[in-house]
């Protein structure tokens, strides 16, 4: 048997329903948008990191082509170049490739037949530069030429410009996509909140005609929609963080593809999402409520 109602123990119920069947679609829409916005944000961070990485890799290295005369032993000339480079300020390390490595590089074009063995192959020296104060191509070339070596220094300047441009483009695109995604998420949250509000037009009218101050009514709806959007944002951001965590776990620091390396710290970008969604929804609900009330006498 149900317990009789005791008005002395009555606790006021919330003036707006805690749950409403009509909210499900709104929560879904906000959650999906937050999920996409967070994924775009994480993707943007990854693209930025990839672009920086490419630049860093190219900036921090150089390749020296060392040619030898018939009377010289190519590997010995390459070793001499390594020693000379070791004295050049801004060079961190230099490693000469032996003949087999040079052959491997040319094999795709010349094949692995005896042709290669009869050719005087130049040797390559891979140089790692000090990233903070890298040696210039001129300083390396001068030092090598002073030692009587016939060399060509490739400091990747030609590639650097292209890679830098590509990196900037990837970074810009990622930021623009994230901004667009976040803005459209905010717009849809606003729209969905307004739609939800208009369904509650009757409650607004009843409270208004019963003598509620506009601020009182706006506070009610603002809180209601902020809580709902926070919950939806939490779901969306949580799902995005979960997916990114799976990618990070499966792919390691490089991610599933070197184009989008993901760091654990990237997941932090999802943290503000529920709060931002709540703020947007609260503002939309407040403005919509006040708009509805302004239209009433």
């Amino acid at each position: 048997m149900a317990k009789a109602f005791d008005h002395r123990r009555w606790i006021p119920a919330p003036l707006l329903p805690r749950q409403d069947g009509r909210d499900a679609s709104l929560v879904f829409v906000i959650a999906v948008l937050c999920f996409l916005a967070c994924l775009t944000g994480i993707g943007g961070l990854g693209a930025d990191r990839a672009a920086q990485g490419w630049g860093r890799q190219l900036k921090g290295s150089a390749t020296i082509i060392v040619r030898s005369t018939i009377s010289q032993v190519p590997d010995a000339v390459a070793d001499q170049a390594v020693q000379v480079l070791g004295q050049v300020p801004g060079v961190k390390s230099a490693i000469a490739q032996d003949r087999s490595e040079a052959e491997a590089l040319l094999a795709p074009w010349l094949g692995q037949d005896s042709v290669l063995q009869n050719l005087p192959l130049p040797r390559l020296v891979n140089v790692q530069l000090d990233v903070l104060k890298p040696a210039t191509s001129e300083s390396m070339a001068n030092a090598l030429k002073a030692a009587g070596l016939d060399v060509t220094v490739d400091d990747h300047t030609l590639w650097m410009k292209d890679i830098g441009r590509a990196g900037d483009m990837a970074r810009g695109l990622a930021i623009a996509t994230f901004a667009l995604m976040a803005l459209s998420a905010a717009a849809v949250i606003t729209f969905a909140t307004r739609a939800g509000m208009s369904m509650r037009h009757q409650i607004v009218e009843l409270l208004h005609l019963t003598g509620a101050q506009d601020r009182f009514i706006a506070d009610l709806f603002q809180t209601r929609f902020a809580i709902m959007a926070f919950f939806a944002g939490f779901l969306g951001a949580g799902a995005a963080a979960g997916l990114a965590a799976v990618v990070r776990t499966l792919g390691g620091a490089e991610g599933l593809t070197p184009v989008l390396p993901i760091a654990w710290t990237d997941l932090l970008i999802t943290l503000p999402c529920p709060v931002v969604a709540a703020l947007v929804a609260a503002l939309a609900a407040r403005l919509t409520t006040l708009g509805l009330l302004r239209a009433m006498p």
Binding site: P12, A13, L16, L207, G211
Partner: peptide, 24 residues
């Protein structure tokens, strides 16, 4: 009539007093 369908009879009745900020 315009009742708040999610509120019980007692809560519906006291709605104007709650709006007026009176102590329950």
């Amino acid at each position: 009539i315009y009742l708040m369908e999610h509120l019980n009879v007692f809560d519906n009745t006291v709605l104007p007093l709650r709006i007026a900020g009176q102590n329950p």
